[in-house]
Amino acid sequence: MERTAVRGRLSWLLADVVELIPETPRVKSIRLRVPGWTGHLPGQHVDLRLTAEDGYQAQRSYSIANPPEGENVTITVELVDNGEVSSYVHEELRVGDRIELRGPIGGYFVWEPARGGPLQLVGGGSGLVPLMAMARSLGGAAVPARMLVSARTQEDLIYRQELSRLPTEIPDLRVDYTLTRSQPDGWKGYARRVDRAMLGETTFDSGQNPQIFVCGPTGFVESVATILRELGHPPERIRTERFGPTGG
C-alpha cells in the first residue's frame, strides 16, 4: 500500500459558516471558508470541535464533500438521534457563525484524478459524502467512473439533483440507484438492498481492475466489500469507510 509523508501538526482553525444547504429533512451541508486551510484530497475528513462557555468541548469527525477548492470546505452532516454535535449543527448553527476544525485527516480512503481509473464508488446513505468529493473532482479528467448509490427512500437521497445532473456533465460517469424501502411511482432504478446481481450489473468487473471505494453503514459496507471480493476484486483494491449508527 502506498504511503504519504507524515505531515506536521494539525492546528485548530476558525472557519466561517458561509452557507447552510438542506439536503434531506435529516441531512444538511455546511459550506465553510477556512482561513489557513492547506488543501485536501477527496475522501479525507475534518474534526469539528465545539466549545461551551464553561470550557466543555465535544469533537466529531465529518467527511469533506467538496473537491479541493482553496479555502472552501463543505461538510455534510446527518442529524443523529441525541447527537451532541449534529443537533447543534442542525438546530443552532447559522450563516455568519464560526466553528473550529482541523484537518485534513486520513490518507488511505482518498482518490484524485491523477490516480487514474477506472473509479468505482459504492455508497449507502450518508456514506455518499466522501464519494461525492471524488465524483465532483472528476471534471474533465476522462477517467471512467461508476457510482452505485443506495438510499432508503427518494427523500433520503442526498445530493439528488446534482447526482442526476453529474453524468450529463461528465460523460465518463455512470450513476445507478437503489431505493431499499420505498420507491416513487415510475421508479426506474433498483428497489432492494445491494446484492451480488446488482453489483455484477452496475460495477466495473475485476478484469478492468478498478479502484473501489465503499462507504456507508457497517452492515452495508461489510456486505458490499465481501461480495466484491467474491466477484474477484483483490482486497487491496477495495477501500472502505464505515459509518456506525452512532456518531453524533
Binding site: 468541548q57 459496507v221 466489500a225 465481501t226 482486497p235 472502505t240 456506525g244 452512532t246
Partner: peptide
C-alpha cells in the same frame, strides 16, 4: 479521555474488506 464520548454500540472501522 478528552474529546471522547461514550457509546453503547461497537462501531466498526476498517480500511478494507473483512478477511
Amino acid at each position: 479521555p478528552p474529546g471522547q464520548y461514550v457509546t453503547d454500540d461497537f462501531p466498526v472501522l476498517s480500511a478494507g474488506p473483512t478477511p
